[in-house]
């Protein structure tokens, strides 16, 4: 069996197949990167909307709650399909890849929003009270007190989620997007050994996700995740 696999390696790794795999890896990387960046940015805004106390933001707060609660409970594949077929019904002529970009971003936003909200809520209210009586504005309190103390609580679960999220992008293959899992399927249907093909796909997923996990650990250390966030400036 092993000798069969070894013999098949040169047959699988032709220039055409390597380009196919690299192209698919790039798509997975792009889907993950866009999902992570958009998710972090929009998730942050969404969590702020959910934490807002001002009545003027209550409609936004309700919408944010609805968004997070629905999307976190619906399987990724279902969301993807709703976006995919919904776009067709609405006459939105977009490629499967664009739909995949939108749906992955929408989903990661919901998950990240919840992680960020939990991190911000974990900061003791007494810290905000101390800031309030010293006349800190809401922005100053957030920037100088709440956020620096919340980061170390937010980052580990966010990066854990991002690593899981990279794996979830495989579901985009169901919509016909040529990402890593889809490339594996294509090569397998061409008659290459499933073990060899999916082992290759596995390694490529690892190559994409491992640096992200390491970067997360680096940021945790840098922001002092074991204790508190400690800015380097005096003031």
């Amino acid at each position: 069996m092993l000798s069969f696999l070894i013999a098949e390696i040169p047959r699988l790794f032709t220039i055409y197949n390597v380009i196919l795999l690299l192209k698919a890896a790039l798509t997975t990387l792009s889907l993950s990167a866009v999902g992570c960046v958009v998710g972090l940015f929009c998730g942050f805004l969404l969590s702020l909307a959910r934490l807002s106390q001002r009545p003027i933001f209550w409609p936004l707060k309700a919408l944010a709650l609805l968004y997070v609660e629905i999307l976190r409970r619906v399987p990724f594949l279902i969301t993807l399909m709703i976006f995919f077929f919904g776009a067709q019904v609405l006459g939105f002529n977009a490629s499967a890849l664009v739909i995949a970009f939108i749906s992955t971003s929408v989903i990661s936003t919901a998950f990240v929003a919840e992680i960020v909200r939990a991190g911000l809520r974990a900061v003791k209210p007494s810290q905000m009270e101390a800031a309030a009586v010293m006349n800190f504005s809401a922005w100053h309190t957030f920037w100088h007190v709440r956020l620096p103390q919340a980061w170390p609580l937010i980052l580990p679960p966010v990066f854990s989620y991002f690593v899981l999220f990279i794996k979830d992008t495989a579901l985009a293959s169901q919509a016909g997007v040529l990402e890593l899992t889809q490339a594996g399927k294509i090569l397998n249907t061409k008659g290459f050994s499933a073990s060899l093909v999916y082992a290759t796909v596995l390694i490529l997923y690892f190559i994409i996700s491992y640096p992200l996990a390491r970067f997360g650990s680096y940021l945790e250390r840098r922001l002092g995740a074991s204790r508190h966030s400690r800015p380097r400036r005096a003031v």
């Binding site: 810290q127 009270e129 101390a130 010293m134 103390q149 005096a234």
Partner: peptide
């Protein structure tokens, strides 16, 4: 100004910054 029973020092700031942050920033 108020001094709280539980101190409520900002955990992310060192002693000097805790004392300076409001006079300088606010």
């Amino acid at each position: 100004a108020i001094v709280f029973q539980q101190y409520n020092l900002f955990g992310n700031m060192n002693v000097l910054r805790n004392v300076m942050v409001a006079p300088v920033t606010i």
